[in-house]
Design a protein around this nucleic acid. Sequence first.
DNA 1: TTTGCTGCAAATCCTTTGCAGAGGT
DNA 2: ACCTCTGCAAAGGATTTGCAGCAAA
Lengths: 139, 139
Amino acid sequence: MQKHPNLRMTRQRQVILEELRKVNTHPSADEVYEMVRKRLPRISLGTVYRNLEILSESGDIKKLEPGCSLKRFDGNPSEHCHIRCVRCDRIADAPLAPDIEIDVAGLMPADYKIIGHRLEFFGVCPNCSDKTNRDANRR
Amino acid sequence: MQKHPNLRMTRQRQVILEELRKVNTHPSADEVYEMVRKRLPRISLGTVYRNLEILSESGDIKKLEPGCSLKRFDGNPSEHCHIRCVRCDRIADAPLAPDIEIDVAGLMPADYKIIGHRLEFFGVCPNCSDKTNRDANRR
DNA sequence: TTTGCTGCAAATCCTTTGCAGAGGT
DNA sequence: ACCTCTGCAAAGGATTTGCAGCAAA
């Protein structure tokens, strides 16, 4: 019942996966494109998008769909939470995978099938905090 | 320190707010546009976008930024969770505002200022479930 | 050899923006 | 009268898609 029954491990797909596993920065499609381009200068952005989609459907990576802005991708497909910086929209791993095993089934709207939930934290990253401080001192 | 110090309650802004408060469907900007157009046929989509932005900044409505897809708007600005249908992307209210007063401060990455968190549920809405059942029976 | 994949470029979708005139306050 | 807001239309950014040739299996 897979969408892509006969996947091929092309050089492009391989490199995208490798580069994504190297970092913990949760890059956007465009950032992945820039990373991969250093090794495969002729790769196209369209190919990057297609492969990120395929790799996330196969479970090798995870597509993050943070509140707002653009999608980001995580080379670590295991279950964990994220923190999004409200200033720069970058994403960091949250060092906990809280088991909010909330017993919500009965509380949800009738006949709504609950599949899961997602807990996202937001805040200000160290980098953006610094910027604020610098700006404040300047006045 | 408001972004919009001298707001005016124009007819367009008024109607957008009224229509949004009538429903609990969390419409997208385009859906709001269709709703409002019945009363103000000459309103433009740009005006709808601008007012949704302004109204959410003033706290009269809430901008939802669900994982994936387009933004949606909630006429009820009080704190509550949502359920998103993974098939049609529509959003319903979750009848609980879980107080996950998780004591996470110490667990988060050092020097990351945590502002808050967001809990989103996802599942399949009644409407899409029905569709699946109908399709299954057809075979 | 088969057929999934690629690069390219155009298209699409959602949202934002510049502008000159209209309309709240 | 002031100055924010509007309608219009064009621009913008992110992502998807059609196509003809390429390359995994």
